[in-house]
């Protein structure tokens, strides 16, 4: 069982969260020329890192906020959590 420290609610069990994938993916800017390759990278292509991975989770059975979680994909260790709009250094 993972324990995720929701920046809004505190430490909660994994059961309350749902996963949203790689948080480093950026949607191409609208109102600009977007190449097929840019859309591909946004929609499909993923690095799927082994090790530290910044990802989105939603506290679906809690505050329902989207949050960012920095987690190790090999050990499942969670290093830091952020609010969705927080910049990650």
């Amino acid at each position: 069982m993972l324990h995720i420290n929701c920046p809004h609610c505190g430490m909660r069990s994994q059961n309350e969260f749902s996963y949203g994938g790689d948080a480093s993916v950026k949607r191409p800017e609208l109102n600009k020329e977007v190449s097929d390759q840019d859309w591909d990278n946004f929609v499909y292509n993923r690095k799927s890192l082994r090790g530290k991975h910044l990802e989105l989770w939603q506290h679906i059975s809690g505050c329902r906020q989207w949050i960012k979680v920095e987690r190790d994909t090999a050990t499942h260790e969670i290093f830091r959590t952020f609010k969705a709009d927080e910049e990650v250094a």
């Binding site: 069982m1 993972l2 994994q14 059961n15 749902s18 996963y19 994938g21 790689d22 799927s48 890192l49 082994r50 991975h53 990802e55 987690r71 994909t73 090999a74 050990t75 499942h76």
Partner: peptide
């Protein structure tokens, strides 16, 4: 399990 993982071992939920 529902989230990216290279762990080769599962989680109970």
């Amino acid at each position: 399990d529902g989230y990216n993982s290279y762990a080769q071992r599962g989680n109970l939920p």
